[in-house]
């Protein structure tokens, strides 16, 4: 009995710090986001006026907000497709094919991931320069192409997609490579004996056997893209030109300064619900029977 009590006290002491910190830094702020979204409140004026769902009504009419949500969803979809596709392809090639300098490629692809977003945006500032000094434009010039204003209004979202994909590929490639390495060699051998091509092996053996991993990374990725988009937009374009590259989190931060806390928190609530919904959707859609090997 005594030892049981001691054990309980020990468990309590172990769990308490985490629970306390989680409550203070996660539960309370999240609750406050939802609460404040129903109030009108300036950032520096502690007076709060309850206005019900008015903030949300105004949000639905705010063209700049709708555009920022569209940009966010565009980034989630495009960056996810390109990053996942390329990372899987490269991981497949690097684990299954006998290439010279495999480790070299692995390192090269991984490097962007350890660079800070500010450094990446500096690199891409040189790549995207709109005149002849820009790296992309000089390459285009070799083929007789015209200079493109990469960070101009028409192309700015494409430019951000490219930078984000470039940054993320390495990390996911390494994740997939580790799970692909665990797939037993014998499966590929027998498939080869049955006459399955390399491509067929990739889609029929590799992909189904690392499906759990793909599912998890996909959910992570959707959420992290929302955050990364904010970082990239802040560092690369500041939401410009004329809000063309504004994303939802950036808009929330901007509105905190311009339209008050309540309105910004209403944006926060929408982003929270959308990211939650998207993750749930991705989880549901990708549900498969787990294959054992």
């Amino acid at each position: 009995m005594k030892s049981n009590l001691k054990r309980r006290a020990f468990v309590f002491a172990c769990v308490a710090p985490a629970v306390i910190l989680f409550t203070i830094f996660m539960v309370v702020p999240t609750f406050n986001v939802f609460r404040l979204s129903l109030f009108q409140r300036s950032t520096f004026n502690p007076e709060e006026t309850f206005i019900g769902l008015q903030n949300f009504e105004m949000l639905m009419k705010d063209a700049a907000f709708i555009r920022s949500m569209q940009n966010m969803l565009l980034l989630i979809v495009m960056v996810t497709i390109f990053t996942m596709g390329t990372a899987l392809l490269f991981a497949g090639i690097l684990t299954r094919e006998k290439l010279k300098g495999q480790n070299f490629f692995r390192i090269v692809f991984y490097i962007p991931n350890i660079l800070s977003v500010v450094v990446i945006s500096g690199i891409f500032s040189a790549i995207y320069a709109p005149d002849d000094t820009g790296m992309l434009n000089s390459i285009l010039g070799l083929f007789g192409g015209k200079n493109i204003a990469w960070k101009g209004e028409q192309h700015v979202m494409t430019s951000i997609v490219i930078a984000m994909v470039w940054q993320a590929i390495g990390y996911y490639m390494v994740m997939y490579m580790s799970s692909m390495a665990a797939v037993p060699e014998s499966l590929y051998e027998s498939a080869g004996l049955d006459g399955a091509s390399r491509v067929a092996q990739f889609f029929q053996i590799t992909i189904p056997l690392i499906w759990t991993n793909i599912r998890t990374t996909l959910t992570f990725f959707v959420i992290s893209t929302i955050n990364m988009a904010y970082l990239f937009v802040t560092a690369m374009t500041g939401g410009g030109p004329n809000r063309a590259s504004n994303v939802a989190l950036f808009y929330m931060y901007e509105q905190k300064n311009k339209s008050g806390y309540g309105y910004a928190m209403a944006i926060g609530v929408v982003i929270f619900l959308v990211s939650f919904g998207l993750s749930a959707l991705v989880n549901k859609v990708t549900e498969r029977e787990v294959l054992e090997y």
Binding site: L59, A64, F65, Q154, K258, S259
Partner: peptide
Amino acid sequence: AEIPGVDTSNTFFAPIDSLVSGTM
């Protein structure tokens, strides 16, 4: 007083970028 989504810099100045780009 605060008007959600409306401020001077995004009304009067930022659209100059679009005027120059020819998208407005």
